[in-house]
Design a protein around this nucleic acid. Structure first.
Lengths: 136, 136
DNA sequence: GTACGTGCAAAGAATTTGCAGATAA
DNA sequence: TTATCTGCAAATTCTTTGCACGTAC
């Protein structure tokens, strides 16, 4: 996937920082936080500031190039996969997993319920993940 | 509904503060924040502190007497309705609405996906609510 | 040259922590 | 009495804001 084209498709002007952050999101489907992105990219872009990471992620989210996840109560997470899919938060280790959506036929676009216009769908599950269960 | 019994059913010792907060959640299904609960109850319990509200809501959540909602990116909200149902966040006015769950047959208990043990299910929708749409 | 992007430092807001006093069985 | 609950104040953490400098077309 061409990251620059991807940004331009969402009307975002590419810059070194924006490309790096978008690319990070695309390559790491681990629902990273601002902190994770910042500290990973810092060696590559030593002048990078956290403000820019915040600004860029907000920009990506507003332009539909990434999704904001509010599943983690402490930090906001981001996801480059904007298609509707479910997330699972392990209450024990805090990891966020992707889950397949079970009921198909999910059409986000132009959907409305009770007169409200639906723009985003998020399915969150919380519990104990496989690994943490096995450790006990 | 007897609030004291409700607390005891979840192994929570009733106290003046805990009863008041639990009762507030049951009577006001508006997904209040810590701040809302605190300022509403303050006239009734003048010695109430925000710390106690935080402590109590955390306790209720841990014991399954209430749910923690992370849909709002700014503040954490709480909900006494622990049965699975959907929430809608208006991106414009920030209000949180309840929505009926469309696909039925949602059984939370003992559910597992991909080996993960599911304890909570949250369905979040985001968009523009009816009222805000009409105002334009 | 002009508009836009970046990043520092400071401010702001939400939540947590430590601890001492109050309360209840 | 003895463990538990409460609440103040301070600390911590995440995020936003204001502003000046850089950069690109």
């Amino acid at each position: 996937m061409n990251v620059i084209e991807h940004l331009q498709e969402h009307s975002i002007k590419p810059s070194v920082q924006r490309i790096a952050i978008m690319q990070y999101l695309i390559e790491h489907r681990t629902h990273p936080t601002v902190e994770e992105i910042y500290s990973t990219l810092l060696p590559t872009i030593p002048t990078l500031s956290k403000t820019t990471v915040y600004n860029t992620l907000k920009l990506l989210s507003e332009h539909g190039a990434a999704q904001t996840l509010t599943i983690d109560e402490r930090n906001t997470c981001y996801d480059a996969d904007t298609s509707p899919h479910a997330h699972f938060l392990c209450k024990h280790c805090g990891k966020v997993y992707d889950l397949p959506i079970q009921n198909d036929a999910k059409q986000v676009e132009e959907m409305s319920i009770n007169g409200h216009e639906i723009q985003e769908i998020h399915y969150y599950y919380k519990g104990i993940c496989k690994e943490c269960k096995n450790k006990k």
